Simulated assay, not measured.
Amino acid sequence: MSADTANSADYQHLLYEVDSDHICWLTLNRPEKINAMNKRLLAELREGLLRADKDDDVRVIVIRGSGKGFCAGHDLVEDANDVFKSIYHYRTHFFEQFDEFTTPWRITKPVIASVHKVAIGKGFELSLFCDITIVTSDTKMGYNEFRYGIAGHCMFLPWVVNMKTAKNIMLTGGEVTAHQAKEIGLITEVVEPDELHEATKRKAKLMAAIPPDIQRVHKMYLNRVYEMQGLKSATDYYLELVAITGHQTVPEYAQLMDMIKEHGLRAALDKAQERYKDLD
């Protein structure tokens, strides 16, 4: 791969490459955490996306994950150490992070999510507001953090699937398989694990062949269709609710954070999962 790596050293958790087919590959690079989103990775992903959007040599952007999975969601260990003085500070934090996190939606060039194995929580949401999502057949997706008393963040889900499906996913906190996700319209394409790179590259090359200005016009138009139907107002309302639940946490979330600090993340999640045993 012929890569633009001039500023790659500036990134701690992101790899930035531009190949000869005008495809920018942004790789989430915290493999030891299954690419869980911390503040640094979120900031670097935003910067990489904006950089690619301004680069005349880039026509399509791909977001993928290194290591064992695409993205295991939000970094709960980092969360356990956050302190917010008031509901206002918590609200400001969530609105700023929403603006940062939804950069793939707001930039003008098409973005493909190339997903393998794991897309949970923030990883799931990231896959939803990319323009195209290609997923390996062994991938699990969903909002299992709801079961721990953690709200979502960028609530695009009701705009992607029908009402009953959205309620089933959100009110059970259950995961869906890749084939289920394709059937209900959450993703674009399912491929076998060893085919992900080639399938992604094939789709990206096709999209890169279309005149760039036409791509930009149609992405902006299609996004505006949903925004005019109320997507932005609805997601803003959800953020207001998240600010309340974040500042006045539910008991289960408080217990989880205490467990993380005392026993570590894995033990805390195992303990929180006990009440759901044999219910799925």
Rank of each mutant, 00 (worst) to 15 (best):
M1W: 03
M1G: 15
N7I: 14
Y11A: 05
L15N: 11
Y16D: 00
S20T: 14
S20W: 03
D21H: 12
D21P: 07
L28D: 02
R30F: 02
R30C: 02
P31W: 06
E32V: 03
N35P: 08
L41R: 03
A43L: 05
A43Q: 10
E44Y: 05
L45H: 03
L45C: 05
L45Q: 10
L45P: 00
G48K: 01
V60H: 04
V60R: 00
I63T: 02
I63C: 03
R64C: 14
G65K: 05
G65Q: 02
G65V: 06
K68C: 06
G69A: 12
C71N: 15
A72I: 13
D75W: 06
D75T: 12
E78Y: 05
N81L: 09
N81I: 02
D82E: 14
K85T: 11
I87S: 13
I87R: 15
H89D: 15
Y90E: 14
R91P: 06
T92R: 15
T92W: 10
H93T: 06
H93N: 13
Q97K: 14
F98D: 14
E100K: 12
R106N: 11
R106L: 11
I107P: 00
T108G: 01
T108H: 08
K109V: 06
P110S: 10
V111G: 00
I112P: 03
S114Y: 05
V115K: 00
L128F: 07
F129P: 05
D131C: 12
E145H: 09
G149P: 08
A151H: 06
G152A: 09
G152T: 10
P158Y: 03
P158A: 01
V161H: 04
T165Q: 11
A166Y: 10
N168S: 13
M170Q: 10
L171S: 06
E175V: 08
E175F: 01
V176W: 00
A178T: 05
A181M: 04
T188H: 12
E189N: 04
E195M: 14
L196K: 03
H197C: 06
T200N: 04
K201D: 10
K201C: 08
K203T: 14
K205A: 12
L206W: 10
M207W: 15
M207R: 00
I210D: 04
I210A: 11
P211I: 06
P212L: 15
D213E: 15
D213L: 14
K219Y: 09
E227L: 02
M228N: 12
T235C: 06
Y238I: 10
L241A: 07
A243S: 15
I244M: 09
Y253T: 00
L256Y: 07
M257N: 02
M259L: 07
I260C: 03
I260K: 07
E262M: 06
G264K: 09
L265P: 07
R266G: 01
D270N: 13
E274I: 10
Y276E: 07
K277P: 00
K277Y: 09
L279W: 12
D280Y: 14
